[in-house]
C-alpha cells in the first residue's frame, strides 16, 4: 500500500510518519508538497501533525485551501482511505471532510504525554487488526484538541458509530479524569459516515517501535494495509 504524506508549510511530523509506514511497516511512502495535485499513485493519504500556516486564524483553516486539498477531497469522495493526525485532523474538520471542530484545550495547556485510547469499533478499515475495547498507548501533543460540535451533530456522530477512539484509563474506563483536553465525550478520533476518513489527535506514528516507548500506533496503519490487501483479493 503506497502512502502519500501531505506536507504543508509548518507541518512537522511528515518524516516520523514516513518512517513509521516505510521503515517500520515496509510500505512505500512519499511526501507530497501541498502545491501538488496529482496523487493518483497513492493508495492512502496521510495528513500529518504540525502547525500548518503557523495555526494562523484557526488550526487547519488556511491549509484547507491548499491545492492538494481538492485532490484529497476527490480521493476521499472515491472512497480512498485518508487519515488526519493532530493538525491533519484539524484540517479535515475545517475542510468539512469530518464533522465538528477542534478548539483550545479546556485547561488552556499544551499537553504532551502518553494516553490510552479505547478502540470503540474493530470493523473499520483503521481498526480491523484490533479488538473492540482494546487499548492503544499512544502520545498526544497538542494545544487545540478539544473536539466540539453542536448537540445535534454530537448525537449523530455517536449514533452512527463514528467515534473510533476515546481517551481512557489503563482499564479502559472513560471519564473526565482520563480526558486530556475537554473533548466532548472523551473523543480522541472520529471517522466519516462512509468510514474511509479518520481524524485523531494522538500521534500513532510516534508509537511505532518499542524503542521509543511503544508500537501500538502501528495498529491503525496495519489495519489500513490489511483492508487494502483484502480489497485487492476480493
Amino acid at each position: 500500500m503506497k502512502f502519500g504524506i501531505v506536507v504543508f508549510p509548518g507541518t512537522w511530523s511528515e518524516r516520523d510518519t514516513q518512517y513509521a509506514v516505510q521503515d517500520v511497516l515496509g510500505q512505500p511512502a512519499r511526501l507530497i508538497w501541498h502545491k501538488e495535485t496529482d496523487i493518483s499513485d497513492c493508495d492512502a493519504i496521510v495528513l500529518p501533525g504540525g502547525f500548518s500556516y503557523g495555526d494562523y486564524l484557526r488550526c487547519g483553516a488556511i491549509a484547507r485551501f491548499s491545492p492538494i486539498m481538492e485532490s484529497v477531497r476527490e480521493f476521499a469522495g472515491r472512497g480512498g482511505p485518508v487519515i488526519g493526525i493532530c493538525n491533519g485532523f484539524q484540517v479535515l474538520c475545517e475542510a468539512g471532510l469530518l464533522p465538528g471542530a477542534l478548539v483550545r484545550n479546556e485547561h488552556l495547556e499544551f499537553r504532551c504525554e502518553w494516553v490510552n485510547l479505547r478502540i470503540e469499533r474493530a470493523d473499520t478499515i483503521f481498526t480491523n487488526t484490533a479488538a473492540k475495547g482494546q487499548l492503544l498507548r499512544v502520545p498526544i501533543s497538542h494545544g487545540e484538541g478539544n473536539w466540539q460540535s453542536d448537540s445535534e451533530t454530537v448525537r449523530r456522530v455517536e449514533d452512527n458509530g463514528q467515534v473510533l477512539l476515546r481517551y481512557a484509563d489503563a482499564s479502559g474506563n472513560v471519564s473526565e479524569a482520563t480526558n486530556p483536553n475537554g473533548s466532548t465525550n472523551g473523543i480522541a478520533g472520529i471517522i466519516n459516515e462512509r468510514g474511509n476518513v479518520l481524524g485523531l489527535m494522538p500521534h500513532p506514528e510516534k508509537a511505532c517501535e518499542t524503542l521509543i516507548g511503544g508500537a501500538d500506533g502501528n495498529v491503525l496503519f496495519e489495519s489500513m494495509m490489511r483492508s487494502a490487501t483484502a480489497a485487492i483479493r476480493s
Binding site: 478548539v103 479546556e106 485547561h107 488552556l108
Partner: peptide, 13 residues
C-alpha cells in the same frame, strides 16, 4: 466569537 453554546476556556481564564 465562539457561539454561546461552545465553551470558551480562554474567555473564562
Amino acid at each position: 466569537s465562539l457561539k454561546p453554546t461552545v465553551n470558551d476556556p480562554q474567555g473564562k481564564t
